[in-house]
Write a protein that binds this DNA or RNA. Sequence first.
DNA 1: ATGTGTGAATCGCTTCACAGCT
DNA 2: AGCTGTGAAGCGATTCACACAT
Lengths: 225, 225
Amino acid sequence: MKPTPGETLRDSAKVSPSTIRRLSKYYRVLGENIAKGTASVSSSELANALGITSAQVRKDLSLFGSFGKRGSGYPAQDLKQKIAWILGLDRSWSVAVIGAGNIGTALIGYGEFEAHGFHVRLLFDNDPAKIGKKIKSLVVKDIANAADECKNEKIEIAVLAVPREAAQAAADQVIRSGVRAILNFAPCHINVPQEVTVRQENTAMELEALSFAITHELFHKKNED
Amino acid sequence: MKPTPGETLRDSAKVSPSTIRRLSKYYRVLGENIAKGTASVSSSELANALGITSAQVRKDLSLFGSFGKRGSGYPAQDLKQKIAWILGLDRSWSVAVIGAGNIGTALIGYGEFEAHGFHVRLLFDNDPAKIGKKIKSLVVKDIANAADECKNEKIEIAVLAVPREAAQAAADQVIRSGVRAILNFAPCHINVPQEVTVRQENTAMELEALSFAITHELFHKKNED
DNA sequence: ATGTGTGAATCGCTTCACAGCT
DNA sequence: AGCTGTGAAGCGATTCACACAT
């Protein structure tokens, strides 16, 4: 009722990162429910699936519009599409993976991404032994040309799957090419201009959080991830 | 000044997940600074490295004790060790990896983990072609025996690197073996008893957060990760 | 009857601001 | 003078509770 579906959000400033993470989860749960033939989903069903309160679900969704029907819940198909629109999954994204090691290899051709519109178009490495070789339908290109190639292919999202030492240099390259966002698997902070969004994926940090939880017998049932 | 370093935290309930993530980052920054020969670090130096305020740094640290010297800052070595103690990194952890695909393979023998006390002792898969083969010094074992083998090896942390469909079954196995924590790479929620801590590692969700940020031209400089 | 949408209340994290060491 | 440690203030996110729609 409040915002304007169909166009870009005007008040996205007040949408918290936590809300975004939850939207991703609602999206998955909806997919599973629809696959099972469910037509309608209530806020408390979604809430149970994520281990949160139903009020939270309704608040999250109401930030973007009123998608539900009082008395019956949310039409599952509709809601899933609305969330896809909110998250920008109703289009496809051009992705480049920098680094053809284990992580890079695991990422390309991972059905989960393709299915949601993330298409890996380019794969780079600096290892002469790898350059020119094919990995799962992609030819490994020389990282030295990353900036130009990414620009030509209009890459929007770059995934850094390189060692810590190489991360900032790789980031600088893809930033020059005009990417809008970077997902960084290197265990280090990278500096980017304001208009580029970065997210850090750091497995060591996740393990450390587990280590803390075990050590202090902490059962953080809230805000778990 | 408040808590009791040297033993388990009494009031760990009031430590937020955000604080834990930041402690992991302080820990990394301290490592880098010490490598450069720095003896003392101020709260604002740490703050700059993470892009947060110095008050935040001091609050975080003061939850666990007073480690700093007024006028000069925090002794880098000491502080790093204190944080190691807080995060439970002053000991070693026995880890099992379930799933010897790309992710599983990337995880074993990754120096970053070994260096922080996370030792991968067991690797499982259900693929007969892989069972018995060696991957980077570990022999792949049959996932059917995961519960027993993990119990024998006193595994404390299990990493699930299996497809979504196999995740809950794998989780049930390692829970039976008595693991305390699970890091789940499968893109799905898993049910665990209260005493087991779970963290979700979900690259698709990270990409979706980037997709949202690009779509809505949102530069979330706060709470980025 | 049931379940949404939402102001109001609450909770908890972050920032301010300053007293107190060194 | 410089920087920590910390109550108090501020602010953003979550939960409550209920009017309203079906």
